[in-house]
């Protein structure tokens, strides 16, 4: 299984990026083995629709779950349609987030936590 954690940097020691659509990096992690890949977010500076584009991009990496701080309505709808589970309110380092996911202490999010354009301009 693969999961995606939004990250402020390339490594597991970096902090979880609190924004989904305009986060700096997507870390695609295999939580069983700890193997991971860092992907710079190609839609970070998109003029609009960053959440939708990022959601399609993350989905195309084959992930089954997403761990992030906040997510907007368009990205959330896209993940719901795709059957990808979204966990919001995640903070600390990426490594800590993965531990929480593995231990089952995260609760899946049913709806967006912020409005559109929340992450723009930061």
């Amino acid at each position: 299984m693969k999961i995606c954690v939004t990250s402020e940097g390339k490594s597991l020691q970096d902090n979880v990026d609190p924004r989904f659509g305009r986060c700096s990096y997507f870390l695609i992690v295999n939580p069983e083995t700890g193997a991971y890949e860092s992907l710079p977010n190609p839609h970070r500076d998109s003029t609009g629709g960053a959440g939708i584009q990022s959601a399609q991009y993350v989905y195309s990496q084959g992930v089954e779950a997403v761990l992030t701080g906040n997510i907007g309505p368009n990205a959330m709808m896209t993940f719901s349609e795709a059957g990808v589970t979204v966990y919001t309110g995640v903070s600390g380092t990426v490594a800590q987030a993965i531990e929480k996911f593995v231990s089952g202490s995260l609760t899946a999010s049913e709806s967006a936590t912020v409005n559109q354009k929340f992450g723009a301009g930061n």
Binding site: S46, G48, G49, A50, I52, Q53, A55, Q56, Y59, S60, G62, N74, T78, E81, A82, G83
Partner: peptide
């Protein structure tokens, strides 16, 4: 404008 999202089939879904 990202007004259409397409999710390509994966894992046989």
């Amino acid at each position: 404008y990202s007004a259409i999202a397409v999710l390509k089939p994966r894992n046989g879904g």
